[in-house]
Design a protein around this nucleic acid. Structure first.
Lengths: 235, 235
DNA sequence: ACGGGTATAATTGTATACAATTATTCAATC
DNA sequence: GATTGAATAATTGTATACAATTATACCCGT
């Protein structure tokens, strides 16, 4: 992380509050707590072996991240995420990933470019072998390098937030082999545009890459899990 | 706010935590606390007549909003905002306000359109009289109506966050009469494009509107206050 | 006078106690 | 049997006590 980073990842992983925050977030994103499930302070504090104080602070932070909805004097609930939310996020990301690629063209370092090439090289290997887990990891790395290279802590922060937010619905993305191959191809094209300092092309390609990723998600049955009925609160 | 809203404005204004959160945010945005100033829990809790608990929770929320930087075991500081941060935010907003206008074209209601017209009508009056305070308020209303009309809680939330974030540096925007008149003209053009259901034109105009607003800010001496040296931490 | 180190103070981090609010149970009434 | 309402339980909200960490002051030796 850059020295300018202002929040999430700066949150102390070693304080109890930080541990609870990160573990709760991980559990929510991993699906351990279902949508609209109530998060009781006492239950969590007992499970994690801490008092309620750090748990409460962690819950309030998760609320601002949008993963938890707190109803005063009532409780904390896992925030519902509708199909439309996901759709909107991908539309927003399409624009911002484009901007990121354009800026990265201006500011990327030689070393970052080499890391990109390595990630793509490995991706091509694992895509041919259909290794879903490694591909997910490499996809994250590709985008993280670009976020870093765009030289804007504000944009980097935005994109990382969105990326985290949709992790809940992204699980199956790379189990589809056809999409994996296409996705890696698109990564390579983006990298080449950046290497050739063609910012506008990099922008277009990155935007398209997001739109394709979303279109593929729809095909793979996003609608089965997220019904998009808009209900977001319990009772 | 829509029923789907997930966080900031949902934060209970009537709980002590909510009061402290909103008051601290207001004070920071209004410039009462300077950049990099330390926010001591005890001092704040005494000043507001509450215990440290709600103050701590409020500070942690402000951290996630990016207004406060917390260094573990050390303290909470007002986050520095560099000239580049502001520049980046306006670039991002330029894209997202465009998207918002495009979506608003699809979803705006007759009643919202009428509210837009009224706001613009009033703006034209106050711009001719050079009433800076009223113009600021009407500008906020114009954009809020569009945020609402875009029918996306995710985008609305993003834009409101950014809007709050740059409040610290926006104070002088409407003291410049020339810009006021231009700005209102641009608002009218955006509204007309939306009324005529020309989404692409609305998008272009809204994007341009943001770029102009930023360019004007630079002329009005943003650089005097924010030197952009990138220092963001105390000591 | 200056630097280093220790004692002290100040501040944050966590746990717990208590208050306020909300949920649940169950009996009384219709 | 369903409904209301009071008593009770459960849960969140706030205050306070104590622990851990960091900052400050001061003494001492050179």
């Amino acid at each position: 992380m850059s020295q300018y980073d202002i929040n999430v990842e700066n949150t102390d992983r070693y304080s109890l509050r930080g541990k609870v925050f990160h573990r709760l977030r991980e559990d929510i994103l991993a699906g351990k707590y279902k949508e609209h499930e109530e998060l009781r302070e006492m239950a969590i504090s007992e499970e994690m072996g801490v008092s309620r104080t750090p748990v409460r602070e962690a819950l309030r932070q998760l609320e601002l991240e949008g993963l938890v909805t707190i109803i005063p004097n009532k409780g904390a609930y896992v925030t519902g995420i509708t199909r439309k939310d996901v759709e909107d996020i991908y539309a927003i990301r399409a624009l911002l990933e484009g901007l990121c690629a354009k800026w990265a063209t201006l500011h990327i370092s030689q070393q970052q470019l080499e890391r990109l090439e390595e990630v793509i090289f490995l991706s091509e290997f694992h895509a041919s072998k259909n290794h879903a887990k490694q591909l997910t990891e490499l996809d994250d790395q590709f985008h993280d390098i670009l976020y870093e290279a765009c030289n804007s802590k504000m944009l980097e922060h935005q994109l990382k937030d969105f990326h985290e937010y949709v992790r809940r619905v992204r699980k199956t993305t790379f189990s589809d082999n056809t999409r994996s191959l296409e996705s890696v191809k698109e990564h390579r094209q983006i990298m080449e545009a950046i290497r050739e300092k063609d910012g506008d092309r990099a922008e277009q390609l990155a935007t398209l890459h997001m739109k394709n990723a979303y279109a593929n998600m729809l095909l793979n049955g996003l609608s089965k899990t997220y019904d998009g009925n808009g209900s977001d609160m319990p009772k």
